[in-house]
């Protein structure tokens, strides 16, 4: 067979496969977007544009407090796990020497423990030690353990290519170590750090398993959604889900555009 023909056959087969997979991934998301905007949420075709479910969502006080709780939880988790992940990345790449691989495996280990086990075991610990039912702080910490590995890997991928002697170049130019971090290292590596912040934020905003066992009665978005699910899916849930999807989408696009603009400038 003509190798060029085989090549393009492989290519197009793969392309079709990719389209099918994307459809599989996005159809549910698009479907519930339509459902949230329709008066007939079960079969919203042809699509309508009706924001009633969004209005109901925004006036529902349970969702409001859940939203604020989730926001607090996710922001704190994102910052905590990114700071820790950054230290871990710098430590492994710069200071661990021969033990770099051991440290890296240890730092990535939470990735290989199911979220629900993290939640349950943290709950067991706090209960055994303090007879504590769990609160916002414990939930943030447990979420940060889970997100930490993601942050570590994302930043390690970014910083792996970073030439550390760039900092030295700044220092011999007269920059203090702190200044060399802000003037040189941060501007070069910020996509990795932003990626880590966004990932940790989104993961902890949406994670149910950890918060479920550590937050007790405090409602968060996923736990309220989960609670509502037991009584059947409501259009408000579709609206909530669509909103989160849109926000995530916007964040990613913004990050992408920012990177593009920076690159174009460079």
């Amino acid at each position: 067979m003509n190798p060029n023909f085989t090549d393009s056959l492989i290519k197009w087969t793969l392309a079709v496969f990719l389209v099918v997979v994307f459809a599989f991934l996005y159809m549910p998301i698009v479907h519930i977007l339509f459902a949230s905007l329709s008066t007939r949420p079960n079969f919203p075709y042809p699509p309508e544009f009706n924001v009633a479910s969004y209005i109901r969502l925004s006036t529902n006080t349970v969702y409001q407090s859940a939203f604020l709780n989730s926001l607090l939880l996710a922001s704190c988790t994102a910052v905590l796990s990114t700071v820790l992940g950054f230290l871990a990345t710098v430590g492994v790449l710069r200071f661990a020497g021969k033990r770099a691989l051991i440290y890296a495996i240890f730092f990535a280990a939470p990735l290989f423990v199911a979220e629900i086990l993290l939640g349950i075991s943290s709950m067991a610990l706090y209960y055994m030690l303090f007879e504590l039912q769990g609160n916002m702080l414990t939930a943030i910490i447990a979420n940060a353990v889970h997100c930490f590995s993601f942050c570590f890997l994302i930043m390690a991928a970014m910083l792996y290519k970073y030439d550390w002697r760039m900092n030295e170049a700044a220092i011999v130019c007269g920059a203090s170590p702190l200044r060399s971090f802000f003037e040189v290292m941060l501007p070069i590596t910020w996509p990795g750090i932003m990626g880590s912040l966004i990932t940790a934020f989104v993961l902890s905003l949406n994670g149910l398993d950890v918060s479920f066992y550590l937050l007790g009665a405090t409602p968060t978005m996923p736990s309220v959604a989960w609670g509502a699910l037991r009584y059947g899916v409501k259009p408000e849930l579709y609206a909530l889900s669509s909103l989160i999807n849109i926000v995530v989408f916007a964040m990613i696009i913004a990050l992408l555009v920012a990177i593009r603009l920076k690159r174009k400038a460079a």
Partner: peptide, 20 residues
């Protein structure tokens, strides 16, 4: 004395110009 207070100039093999 810390390197940034020594008032030296240095040129590296990989140049290490700030890309941004």
């Amino acid at each position: 004395l810390a390197p940034h207070k020594r008032g030296i100039g240095m040129v590296f093999q990989e140049f290490l110009l700030f890309p941004h």
